[in-house]
Design a protein around this nucleic acid. Structure first.
Lengths: 339, 339
DNA sequence: ATTAATTACGCAAACGATATCGAATCTGCA
DNA sequence: TGCAGATTCGATATCGTTTGCGTAATTAAT
């Protein structure tokens, strides 16, 4: 197996004890400056790197952060991860990424694996299946720093970073209403996700304010967030088979938006004439779609950054933090041709 | 900090030694079946999980695989990672993902971090800056299993998994020629990447076979693979400022393709009338673009799967493997409206 | 000169799990 | 009864690092 230089190699070469070398490396005041210099220079010369595994075992900080998201192959999450990495890298942390694929079981397995590899903290965006948070609460109580982002839960008292989902869908719905659409549907994510509730609230509020009726049948849930293409087909079918077909849709995720466009193309539905579309999406090429998409863009990169800063704040805090807040970041509605 | 149940807790509770507990847990023949049963049941009851960090330190297998790619926010790589994960998960391995962001320095830092966290093996796709592989060769000689995928190097004798890039760009170029395009350009990745050479070869071969001249000025390299938008703008400007403007382009990456479409839109260039486009891209919605894209799709998911299977084969092999092969997977040309 | 304080370092235990070696108990056989 | 061999388990070293404690050597104070 791959073997590296250890502190023992240094101590042998220099005729010192391992403890002296260790302390010299860490700049302890107990070591004379000459010895320090000797050790430091030799370590530099042979390119010594402390073994993080041994450090972990000793219980010291690890300088690594575990990240769990449902799916990497998703613009929002890959951008968020880039934000996470940008901060982590600057602060000397490494990130370890896992995917839950919207499965509760895989979420638990992966998070436990991260914890047992002794990451210093966890950045969590919940799977759409997750209802029981006891495993996370357990870890949290035992002192594992955790910050939620995007898909959060009230069950855990810690920092949370989200987009202003309610306002975003309020704005989107409002925009459609202003454009003259009357029967606005909402295709959204799994029902128990925090983002789903937040977005639904904004959607309802906009309808209410303009005196439009709220029709339960106009809200379709995709339990796999659009990762399973069929569920979106079913959702669209459900919408379009109603007596009063909707004339516009607010879609709540990247996949849902694109699948809706595909379905509309198959059904020869003209956008925006037959169907207005405003979508939550973080694609960087909304203008290249046919038609160019009116989008709500979430500040994914910034969310990752803010969440990471908060997590590192917890990790590096001397005394336990008890006051937590939820950061809410603004979204951006960009009007193009789809509505 | 987060603390878990150890073998010591079990031994204390059961009045046994840690060695007995350890052996019982691993099913050693030296332990009586009653003791085994006792230990196993108790371990199950209190939900004991061996500490992977301690196992790593002991030098045993870790059941984790390090992955390094240039960019996660890239359809090809995120799909490849899903392929990697699908195999790894089934075989009981966890994956740890890092990004080089096309930087040699970050590649080295991240790979060394992965190695020092004692992953059992490495799945590597090189950054576009990487020329010096000595650090990887070093690890490889010391016994670290390594498999390259997509962006490979001849410098290391190990398994490699690539798409049939030469054939892919040959097919793409050929398709454009058949469609009547005469002056076909090629916007591609960094010059020292293996995929760049392979794709250029196929491009040249197609031109040669049809008796079309090869014009160096028609080949533009993007050293950041399109991550820096300007470099693509420059490439397009370089192409379009020539006396004999190209009438078609073969683009070599997702980003390059989409940036080209954006640029064409700005320049009011009509696709496919003024400019034929065939692009290497793994987007799952090529038909939603305007116009629908003629694409070369790489078998990203399968590449990830194959690479992972090979890596696990090396990891779990009793004796060192000395015979390595390079797997070449077929790509898929799908004709749509852009050419 | 004797004691106290300071400096500079080494010894050994610890983190959690495993493996080597050795020891205790039991069984079978002469 | 005595002894070899099998069976079952424990003590200990180990991985690489940190850390509490001990101690020798030097310096300062009385």
């Amino acid at each position: 197996m791959y073997e590296a230089i250890t502190i023992k190699d240094i101590s042998k070469a220099l005729g010192l004890s391992t403890s002296t070398v260790s302390r010299a490396l860490r700049g302890s005041y107990e070591i004379s400056s000459e010895t320090k210099k000797l050790v430091l220079e030799y370590a530099e010369k042979i390119n010594y790197r402390p073994n993080p595994v041994a450090l972990s075992l000793k219980g010291r900080r690890n300088c690594s952060i575990g990240v769990i998201v449902s799916e990497i192959a998703n613009n929002f999450f890959s951008q968020a991860i880039n934000g996470i990495e940008s901060i982590a890298y600057n602060r000397g942390y490494h990130i370890i990424i896992s995917q839950s694929h919207e499965s509760y079981e895989r979420e638990v397995v992966n998070i436990q694996h991260l914890a047992s590899r002794s990451v210093d903290g966890l950045l969590v965006s919940l799977s759409s299946e997750t209802k029981d948070l006891s495993y996370l609460m357990n870890m949290h109580e035992k002192g594992m720093p955790i910050v939620f982002f995007d898909r959060i839960s009230e069950g855990l008292n810690t920092f949370k970073v989200i987009a202003d989902n309610a306002k975003a869908s309020y704005d989107a719905t409002n925009h459609l209403i202003k454009k003259g659409y009357k029967r606005i549907a909402h295709i959204t994510n799994a029902v128990n996700l925090s983002i789903t509730k937040e977005r639904l609230d904004g959607y309802k509020k906009a309808l209410e304010e303009k005196g439009l009726p709220y029709n339960e049948k106009y809200v379709q849930y995709c339990n796999h967030g659009g990762m399973v293409a069929e569920e979106i087909d079913v959702a669209i079918k459900n919408l379009m088979s109603q007596k009063q077909k909707p004339d516009a849709v607010v879609t709540a995720s990247d996949r849902i938006t694109t699948c809706l466009l595909s379905a509309a193309k198959k059904l020869k539905l003209k956008i925006p004439e037959n169907l207005g579309v405003v979508g939550f999406t973080n694609t960087n090429i909304p203008e290249l779609f046919n038609p160019p998409l009116t989008t709500i863009r979430q500040p994914a990169f910034e969310m990752g950054q803010v969440a990471t800063e908060l997590l590192i704040k917890i990790i590096e805090s001397k005394r336990p933090i008890t006051e937590f807040e939820t950061k809410i970041l603004d979204t951006e509605l960009t009007v193009r041709e789809s509505a």
